[in-house]
Nucleic acid binder design. Structure first.
Lengths: 158, 158
DNA sequence: GTCTTTGCAAATGATTTGCAATATA
DNA sequence: TATATTGCAAATCATTTGCAAAGAC
């Protein structure tokens, strides 16, 4: 469950920040696309549909604000764009989910896994390094692309 | 064991590429700093000491070449710079090591761990996603910084 | 001598910033 | 009304690229 619009308004007010149309719309776009991983430009395009007057700089500033409020997460796929996704509230905070990135179709999927806790405990006791956050990216081929590739290879062999 | 200069020359020749002073020096700097994680600018500064005529663009082009030859790895710490480190030859190829990034002193340490193989197997069987590569970054506080912080907190309490 | 590589300066492109105009409280 | 926010255009800054000169083979 990602954040609710009314909760967002409340958070803004508590921090002495102003509730603006632009901030609400950016959050809404992020909430509507909770499985996608949008770049600032993509958020901008979607926001512009109903709000043609908004500026790209405002999208960047809002996204920055949402990051500071820990309402969204950022992912960097090293393709030249930073992507944003709405957070899963408290659950995400110290238990960030991981990403599967398909090298063929470019799709990004999220998944949860507890296996890293053991890794973090090991790092703590072996190296004295106190882990507070982690980022895991697994690159490869998604189910669809794996199957397509297999089929193509079979056809070649015939 | 990272790559040897003579092996590098051989690889270049095999690919029909030319052995230049610049390429050798960039590789040398990377080899000398195998525990550091240098940015292109940092490589440039070190290369310039003995080779004042080299251009930054050449460093970028060489680093790109070394990546394509899979002789070095890239790390992105999301601080605006891409960093490069010399690879551990074959071992690294399908068994990339992970990074511990200290949020206080900024140090980056590498470590190896086999735990992720189980994770990859799980992802394969549960989701049909075929993993070919991964990148794991653990953020937190290194041993020194953890201890310093503890000490500071004690002093405050006195 | 041919083809690749280099150095320089200019271009690129995502993100940030200064500032006057505008909206919020 | 006072303060925060916005939109625009210009600035920033890491990285890339065009091109003529230099280097490798």
């Amino acid at each position: 469950m990602s954040i609710d619009k009314e909760d967002f308004k409340k958070i803004l007010k508590e921090k002495g920040l102003k509730v603006t149309r632009q901030r609400l719309v950016v959050l809404e776009v992020l909430a509507e696309n909770d499985t996608k991983h949008l770049t600032a430009e993509e958020i901008y395009e979607r926001v512009k549909v109903e709000n043609p007057d908004i500026g790209l700089a405002t999208v960047y500033r809002t996204v920055q604000l949402l990051l500071e409020l820990e309402l969204i997460d950022r992912i960097n796929l090293d393709d030249g764009y930073v992507r944003y996704e709405i957070g899963d509230m408290e659950k995400t905070k110290h238990h960030r989910h991981h990403h599967l990135i398909c090298l063929k179709c470019g799709n990004v999927m999220a998944f949860q896994n507890d296996m890293l806790e053991a890794l973090e405990t090991g790092v703590q006791s072996a190296l004295g390094f106190h882990v507070t956050d982690h980022e895991v990216k697994l690159y490869g081929f998604c189910k669809d692309c794996s199957e397509k590739e297999k089929k193509e290879n079979q056809e070649v062999k015939i």
